[in-house]
């Protein structure tokens, strides 16, 4: 499995993401700088990591989603390359339009940093096949802008098409219908606020994120 991690100024989960990808695949990911205008060839998965790209200026993910590497990322997504956006990566994916909706300020305006209990709502995606349906998993969250918003028509469509992949077991940030992660129509672009790369080693306090990365090997 060949992977790349996109690095923006202000990314801070890029190396954790690289460790997670290397742990399951045995291959070192390409670290790709946001200012590059092309991706290495032969990629199976591109990860857009968490952090605070461009200091969250204007809106979280707004600047990053207009940087020069994003054009080839969108082209890769349209070719069917898997894209995983975590936290700030999810915000960036909604800003690019690859995923619908927007991530707004948490409804209680607090930064939330804890282990979140999630339900694997859809285990038939290429990112979640190693989980059981409706499995409960514990994955760390750390965000200020994780309140998923979309109009009710979009939310209904996401639900009906099985595109809600992860849901919070309880309301932690005001997200519509407790949505923690969604996938695009073609099933190759996943965005999620929780950090699976922070739960792949017993020393992290849990390994519930490992199955997500192992699913990518299928």
């Amino acid at each position: 499995m060949q992977s790349a991690v996109i690095v923006f100024p202000g990314s801070n989960c890029d190396r954790d993401m690289a460790v997670a990808l290397e742990t399951v695949s045995g291959n070192k990911p390409h670290m790709v700088w946001h200012g590059d205008s092309e991706l290495p060839s032969g990629l199976d998965i591109i990860a857009i990591p968490g952090g605070f790209s461009y200091g969250d200026y204007l809106r979280s993910g707004a600047m990053a989603s207009r940087s020069s590497i994003i054009k080839p990322v969108i082209e890769a997504a349209n070719r069917g390359v898997k894209i995983l956006g975590v936290c700030n990566g999810f915000q960036i994916l909604t800003e690019t339009g690859l995923l619908p909706g927007a991530l707004m300020r948490n409804s209680n305006i607090n930064f939330v940093c804890k282990d979140a209990e999630l339900e694997v709502t859809n285990n038939t995606t290429v990112f979640t096949s190693r989980y059981a349906k409706n499995e409960s998993i514990s994955i760390p969250v750390a965000h200020h802008d994780g309140n998923f918003f979309a109009d009710s028509e979009t939310l209904d469509r996401l639900e009906n098409e099985g595109r809600v992949v992860f849901r919070y077991r309880s309301d932690i940030n005001g997200s519509s219908r407790n949505i923690a992660g969604i996938i695009n129509e073609a099933g190759n672009v996943l965005g999620m606020m929780p950090h699976p790369e922070r739960a792949i080693d017993a020393k992290h306090g849990g390994t519930d994120g490992l199955a997500l990365f192992e699913s990518l090997l299928n």
Partner: peptide, 9 residues
């Protein structure tokens, strides 16, 4: 439309 506002919200 392209940057300053996110017209979703």
């Amino acid at each position: 439309d392209k940057l300053l506002a996110n017209t979703v919200i």
